[in-house]
Structures are given as C-alpha cells and as structure tokens.
Design a protein around this nucleic acid. Structure first.
Length: 786
DNA sequence: TTAGGATTGG
C-alpha cells in the first residue's frame, strides 16, 4: 500500500512508521546515495494538477517545505510522483498538509534556483518501492475516511505536528500555520463579492504585524473574534506580499480557533468545526501569548455603557436587541439596551408601527433604557438577519449631537455609518460569552417595577396628566419630581424658595429644592484644591514637576554615612551606575527591633528620583523623602509631599507647620501596632496636614430665583475622596458621570433634575462692602446616581 | 471575486 493516511489524534499517530525508516534532512540530500530506507517530512506548499506524461504514465508534482528548518535558505524541494501513486496522491494530498516521503530517488537539477527551492528533486513511484504517508489530522479525518477507509494505517513513533511560523519568518507564496494576538479586526461583513469578509491584524512576540483578509461564504467559518486581545490560531493561511508587506489571505482548507486573551480565563477554543486538534502544548502556547499580550497589547477600548456615552464619540456597545425596523433602502433601525440609562435625551427614529419587530410590551417597559441605533448601507443586510433577544456587540457607533427644528433641546443620535473603517460593524455574541453572561445578570437585576412605581407616583402628583402625556413627557416629569441628591440630616426642615433666601440676612440655614443650571469649574480636575484647616487657606495641588525639581536639588546632598542603621531604622545604600553616580539611601523603619512586611513598612529615602519613589509606594506602605543634615535626617521643602501613601501625596501647610526632626517618628514605630496614619505621622513631624477638597460653584435655580452656592467637599457629597481623584481614572469617570446626571448638558431648564440641598448663608466683609455667600452642607449625591 | 485597517452622511 504505497500511499497511506496516518491518523493523527492529539498530535500522536496511532502506529509507528516502519522501523527501518530513518529521517533525512532536506539540506543534507546527496545524489547517488541509497535512500531506500530514508524519509523526509514536510508541509505541502504547492501541488500541481495531475497530468499524463507522453507515455501515458500519471504524473503529480508537489512542493514540500521542511517544517523543521523554516529559516534555512533552502527548505523546499520538489517531489515528482509517477504512476498509480501519482493518481492516489492527487486525490488526497492538499496544500498545508504534512507528508512523509520514503524510499525516494534524489535527482540533481542542472541549475540551482534562488527561490528557496532545492537544487535537487525527489522522484517516487510504487515501482521504485517508495511510500508516501499523508498525516491526516483528526479534524479532516471524517472526509478522508469516507474517501479511502482501507488506507488508514495506524502508527506511532513519528509525531507529525503542525508547525507554527513566527510572523517575522513569513515568506511570500507560502501556506503556513500561525498563532497571533488580535490587534485590530473588522467583524465579518457582507463583501461586494459572494462571501463574508473579515479583516484581522495580528501580532506575535516577534513584534511583527500581519493583516489577514479572510473570506468565506459561511459566516460561521470566519474566526469568532469579539475583542482586541483575543488570540487566534490559523491553519493553512496563505502568505502573499502586497504593497511591500506580507499579507495573509484565506486559502483552501483555512481553519481557525479563537481564544479569550484574558490571562487566567479558561482556554476554550471558539470554532465552527466540531472536531479539531488541541493539545496541552497548544494550551501552553495560548497561556504564554496571553501573558505576552498583557504587557504588549493595549486593549483599552472606548466607553462601553450607555450611561457613559458622550456626544461626538465612537464607541463599542455590548447590548441586547429588543426591537428592529426597516427604515428605508439604505438604513435599518436597531433598538437595544444594556441596562443603563443614557444621561442625555436620545433620538427616537420614527418608524411605521407595522415595520417594528419586537415585543411591544417589553419595548414599552424598557422605553427609558432603549436607544435607537440607525445602521446604514453594508450593515443593513446583517442587521435585518439579527434575531430579537440576541446579544450584540456593535463596533464604532457614532454619537452625534443634534436638535430637530421643533425641539429646543438637543439630543444624541446613534449611527452606525456605512463602511468598515475602524472595525465598524455588528457582531453577534453567544450566550456563553463572559461579557454576555455579565450583561444578562445585570439586565435581570434592573428593577423595571421601580421605575413604574415612580410613574404611578408621578401620575398622582400630576393629577391625571398620565393619561395624556407621551412617553417623553412622562420621562421628563419623572426626572423633575425625583431629587438626584439626598439630605443626610435635618429632614424635618421645610423647603425655602431661593428668592426668600436671597432677600434674607445671613447667617442662616435652609433646605432648598432647586436645579443645577451650571457649575464651575467645568474641568473637574480643576476643582481639587488643598485646604489648611488651621489657617483656612486654599492652594493648588503642586504638579509632579515641582516635586521632581525639589528631589533633584536634594540629591546633590549625599546621604550622611553617620545616619545609617540606628536603633529604629535599618539602612541600605548604593550608588547608581550612570554618569551622575547618584547616591541613594533607604532607611526602613523597624517595629519591635524587627523589619515588618513591606506592606506594613514605612521607609525614608534620600537621593531618589520621582520614578523610584513612585515605584517604592507600590510596594511599601509609606514613603517619606528626606535628606541628611549633620546630625539628623530632615524633611524636604514643604512644596514637596512630606509623605506618599499608595497613590496619594500628602502635603503640609508651609505657614502652619513647624517641622520636627524625623526621629520623632520612632515614637510611632514603638507603638504596639503602628498604623502609620497620615494624620498621626503629620502630627509627630510637626506638620499641619493639608486636606484635598473639591471646591465648586453651583448656580442653583428654582421658580423664584437663582443663587450661587459653594460646594466644599472632602468626600461626602460625591462619595469620592478628593485625595484620590487626581490619580484615579475610574473615579474621574464616576465624577464626570455624576455631574452629567446632576446637570445634563444640552437640556433646557425644565428638563433638569431636582436637587434637594442644605445651604447655609454667611457674611464676608472687606473694607468696602459686606457680601453674603452660600455653602452646601449635609447633602450627598443619591445612591442610584453614583 | 470580495479587500488590502485608518471614522464623523443619512
């Protein structure tokens, strides 16, 4: 049986090659030697159609690439197959497959080619005693089994396996297998030809990118990529050069697996094939790629929740489809929700009731959550095919701010423009997707009954307007009735109108119900200041450059060797290897004569840079920058933070502080369990601690008038510590969302929500006049707002 | 064949 299929399951063949066969390397072939008992193994990169020679003999030619020597200049060789063997091989050998050729004859060619093909070729035939083994992986086996069941010869010793080419070793005209991390992708879309198309850009640890253009008439056969950072395994992808760069394109037999790129997530391939090869070794590859990707691929995407959308942005939305409707030939409407509310009024696309598909009752129940997304052109066909209830990720939705002629208020429109720029498109997510599971759980937790109760409350308040009002009016009435802030005390006080307050003398305290017409500063980071509660001064938070400057200055003073290793701290010193030869000393404060765990340790550093100090704060509880004097360590200039803890820099008031020698810290170190609280450290060091505070000016209005009230808040109002906001993106976003809820941009006054607040009036006198100011107190943002 | 990454129109 000259042509045999080797059944490969989990990378192993079931039976060994005949024991007399020895492997030969493509590079070491020589003419004139006996190759009866030799075999070479390679991947078929080319195969030619079966032809007949002049004498009627069947002839079949393939090009084999030595998969173990991909980098070698000469790694391919032509194999010429004659007679019955040619006929059989032509039936079953396909490009990309691994083939073993045994008992061949080596024939030298007249000239050596320069294209990587060998200077010899191999000739094989049944008559010459040759044998060809085609390594059939299990994923293809069923087809072959039907074709040629008697051919399956189990054997084991050789374990042919897929060879994966690193992206920096790709060559024009080859068909390869590869692993890569998705850096960019276009979800499958309907091409202008007959197939679906998906464009995927991959990278691998060789740091070379490869953009692949994948076509298939079956949507399911294209890789199931859901986000940047996913990992793919491509089999039999063709490499071509295009515009001076390597490009991947689907070849016959292309197959792919896709994996979640998250470190630690289960390694479960997404694929349309029911049978595929996947081994422990491949699991390891995925895990290694995940770790590589974690520090080499940026997967931070734009905002993905409706509550976080801003006008004029592009974002990806994970959502559930609850309605759809034909609009016209070139556009189609999708009604979706994600369980959060868009902070702006949203555009409702007018459609004929008969054209709207979806559960009407549900659409009504969800009307405050649902947004209309209009999709255009090439996305229409895919949108039409979507099933109501399915979970979607819509990529690169454009939020456009607009106002209709008959509206005073501007609204937000959601468009999925035509084309596929930036991966614009629609993907259907399976229910097994972790993001879908999370979304489903969230959607189930959304309390629809709650919003309905509020409506009935409104309808009572509004004395019958419920029956007449449209959905939009009801929504507005509801938001007019509810307060987005909560009083934390004095609930017994009754409301006072703003006009009454501005007409009264100060000081007094009031409960008010008003709307936030505007606020300052609009750039929220500018609202954070440092406050000294002793002298009541406010100052700007110094930036990193000031600190850097002070550190550079203090690095000029070398650490004093006499101040190392005292009874209460242990010191480590070294000199940097660079030109500056900077001396650094770190003094670790001991507790009970012992060094503590890093996360409980306070250390002092001399000669450190901004970056070094920042790194130390990640590992140790407290870092205090110091410098040497003749007889003790001392704090730096108070324009620099005297203490760093986590992300927070603590400053002292220059005016009110009287710095003490740092050995005063030893008193805290001697405590039973030193907590290293900033207030306590400040106190023993003679520092008047400055506190981070939000200072904002709110312009509040009601039916009777307006007044400006100051918000002076350490943490209570926003439920966000002012000390942490400057270094925490998440908190910044949270605060921005809160302000968008309190004062949604683009709405007219009537549509703004109510704020219930306590304010107190007070007098400020200067030489010429007395002025009354107002400050908000004992008020917090409602829990469901933040 | 199709697309070959690189937003904003309805």
């Amino acid at each position: 049986m000259p042509v045999q299929l080797l059944k490969i399951i989990k990378g192993q063949s079931e039976t060994p090659l005949p024991s007399h066969l020895q492997e030969e390397n493509v590079q070491h072939l020589q003419e004139g030697c006996d190759h009866t008992n030799k075999y070479i193994q390679g991947v078929v990169t080319l195969s030619y159609p079966l032809t007949k020679l002049g004498d009627g003999t069947d002839f079949f030619k393939i090009v084999l690439q030595d998969s173990d020597n991909l980098c070698s200049q000469i790694n391919s060789i032509n194999v010429l197959i004659y007679g019955k063997m040619a006929e059989e091989c032509a039936k079953i050998i396909r490009r990309g497959e691994t083939v073993i050729v045994a008992g061949f004859k080596v024939v030298k060619l007249p000239t050596v080619k320069e294209d990587g093909t060998h200077g010899y070729h191999l000739e094989v035939s049944e008559e010459a005693g040759s044998a060809i083994y085609v390594c059939v992986l299990y994923e293809c086996l069923n087809n072959f089994f039907l074709l040629c069941p008697h051919c399956i010869m189990p054997f084991q010793s050789v374990a042919p396996k897929y060879v994966y080419t690193p992206m920096n070793h790709l060559k024009d005209g080859t068909i390869v297998n590869l692993y890569g991390v998705v850096k960019f992708f276009k979800p499958p879309y309907v091409s202008k030809g007959t197939d679906y198309c998906s464009v995927v850009t991959l990278v691998d640890p060789s740091n070379v990118k490869l953009t692949c253009t994948l076509f298939n008439g079956n949507l399911d056969s294209l890789p199931k990529i859901y986000k940047v950072g996913d990992i793919v395994r491509f089999h039999r992808i063709k490499i071509r050069e295009y515009n001076g760069q390597m490009q991947g394109i689907t070849s016959a037999g292309f197959a792919s697996l896709t994996f979640d790129g998250t470190v630690g997530a289960p390694v479960v391939p997404r694929t349309s094939s029911k049978v595929y090869t996947f081994m422990d070794e491949e699991q390891k590859t995925i895990e290694e790629l995940r770790i590589w990707a974690a520090s080499n691929i940026s997967i931070s995407g734009p905002a993905a929740k409706l509550s976080g959308v801003q006008p004029m942005q592009f974002f990806d939305l994970t959502c559930q489809l609850v309605g759809k409707a034909k609009v016209d030939g070139s556009s189609f409407l999708l009604k979706v929700w994600d369980g959060t509310k868009c902070p702006y009024p949203t555009w409702k696309v007018p459609v004929e009731a008969k054209d709207l598909e979806g559960e009407k009752v549900l659409l009504h129940q969800l009307r405050n959550f649902v947004v209309d997304i209009l999709v255009y052109d090439n996305h229409v066909q895919l949108a039409e095919s979507l099933k109501i209830g399915s979970f979607l990720r819509i990529y690169s939705i454009h939020t456009k701010q607009a106002s209709a002629d008959n509206e005073d208020v501007s609204h937000i429109e959601f468009h999925l423009h035509g084309g596929t720029c930036y991966g614009r498109g629609i993907g259907v997510l399976p229910e097994s997707n972790p993001d879908v599971k999370e979304l489903k759980a969230f959607l189930e937790s959304v309390d629809l009954a709650d919003s309905q109760n509020m409506e009935s409350m409104c309808s009572m308040d509004l004395d019958g307007t419920f029956g007449n009002g449209t959905d939009l009016e009801l929504d507005l009435q509801r938001c007019q009735q509810l307060s987005v802030t909560v009083l934390t005390d004095h609930q017994d006080l009754s409301n006072t109108e703003l006009k009454t307050i501005t007409n009264s003398t100060a000081p007094q305290q009031y409960r008010i119900r008003a709307k936030l017409r505007t606020y300052k500063p609009q750039k929220l980071h500018q609202s954070v200041k440092l406050h000294c509660s002793k002298c009541n001064s406010l100052q700007e938070v110094p930036d990193g450059d000031d600190f850097d400057f002070i550190l550079r200055g203090s690095a000029n003073t070398a650490p004093n060797p006499e101040l190392r290793n005292t009874s209460w701290y242990e010191s480590v010193t070294w000199t940097t290897q660079d030109q500056k030869q900077r001396e650094i000393a770190i003094h670790f404060v001991k507790h009970d004569e012992m060094l503590q765990y890093p996360e409980d340790t306070l250390l002092m550093i001399e000669g450190g840079t901004l970056k070094e100090i920042w790194k130390l704060t990640k590992r140790f509880k407290c870092v205090i920058p110091v410098r040497s004097t003749e007889d003790d360590l001392e704090l730096l200039d108070l324009s620099a933070p005297f203490l760093l803890q986590g992300n927070v820099k603590y400053y002292g008031c220059k005016q009110c502080s009287t710095p003490k020698p740092v050995k005063s810290l030893s008193s805290i170190a001697a405590e039973q369990q030193p907590s290293w609280e900033p207030t306590e450290i400040a106190q023993v060091l003679g520092i008047e601690l400055l506190q981070y505070v939000f200072i904002m000016k709110f312009t509040l209005v009601d039916e009777t008038g307006a007044l400006n009230a100051y918000l002076f808040d350490y943490e209570k109002f926003f439920q966000i510590p002012a000390s942490e906001i400057l270094t925490n993106n998440f908190l910044q976003q949270k605060m921005e969302m809160t302000m968008n809820t309190l004062c949604p941009p683009g709405r007219k006054l009537g549509d703004l929500p109510w704020l219930e607040c306590f304010i107190k009036s007070y007098n400020v006198r200067d030489a010429t006049k007395n002025q009354v100011y107002y400050q908000i107190f004992d008020t917090t943002v409602a829990e469901d707002v933040v």
